[in-house]
Design a protein around this nucleic acid. Structure first.
Lengths: 158, 158
DNA sequence: CTTGTATAGTACGAAATCGTACTATATAGT
DNA sequence: ACTATATAGTACGATTTCGTACTATACAAG
């Protein structure tokens, strides 16, 4: 009485949509990450790039802890990413004068330059995607995605 | 002439939307994965679960290669995932009678049962999300996500 | 000022991810 | 049949991810 090779279609209807949504999201994240990463030089990862980008956009002097929270990764992972950036001389980690336990992340000129080059390297792929997907469609789903992210964010805290 | 601490707002407008979209997607993938994974027993990962789920839904007897393609992961990663499932006696890997190079992945009864239990463990979180996000909104963004996934899929092949 | 608790970061190790190189089998061209 | 090329999977190692335990500092209560 083997049931092998008998596909099974029943599903709890409700979870179905959400499950598929998360599934698509997961695959998109994976594909886009590897696509973009292949454009970065010197073995930089997307984590490296997004960290640099964060520092340029929000101004440097952030603490590693804040960045870990901003990117929703464990502090040990952020520590590893920042160590990689420091090894490449793209940031410097200096003691935080306002808190003896903490540090501050300072962009170097090389880091700022690297972020510029990285943006130029990524821009073609990213901009090429927009018209294919449809600018309107892209804009249309953004609020829902933000909402979902916020939901997951909150449910993690509790 | 340091520019440190001077946030920077200029952006190449076009890539802006797409970049943020991929950014949200990446964080959602990460948060949902870690949320769901924490519900699985015995150190099962989402990869393990989705592999089991795939086998139940599409019928077992798939080849590892097909599964790697379905999940868009390198074959060595799929190999690792399947090895984990086999070690837990949730699948068996048997030689493929139709192709001496290949194998077939066979679900065991324990694997089928584990998939049932996992679904029950995940369902509450997933179903709870749907009403909070709004069933209509969720349904509305699904086609666009599928389209984006297909786009990235295609651009990987070439 | 001392003591207890919370927080920032590091050290370390286990597991996951994935690229490269390799083996075995399949398939096409001659 | 023979050779060349392509494919499925494994072996192995480098790197990433991240949990646990630890150190050092902050801060609040008394």
């Amino acid at each position: 009485m083997t049931r092998s090779n008998t596909p099974d279609s029943e599903q709890p209807a409700d979870g179905r949509v959400m499950f598929e949504l998360l599934n698509e999201v997961g695959i998109i994240a994976q594909l886009s990450r590897s696509m973009l990463e292949s454009r970065l030089e010197d073995g930089l990862t997307m984590h490296h790039f997004t960290a640099l980008n964060h520092l340029v956009r929000l101004g440097d002097g952030c603490t590693p802890k804040d960045m870990a929270k901003a990117f929703q990764v464990p502090k040990t992972s952020m520590s590893h990413t920042l160590a990689g950036l420091e090894k490449r001389r793209l940031v410097r980690l200096v003691p935080n004068p306002e808190d003896g336990r903490g540090k501050r992340v300072i962009l170097t000129e090389a880091g700022r330059a690297q972020r510029e080059r990285s943006i130029e390297a990524l821009a073609p792929d990213i901009s090429a995607l927009l018209p294919k997907l449809g600018a309107e469609e892209a804009l249309a789903i953004l609020p829902t995605l933000r909402k979902l992210r916020a939901l997951l964010d909150r449910s993690r805290d509790s």
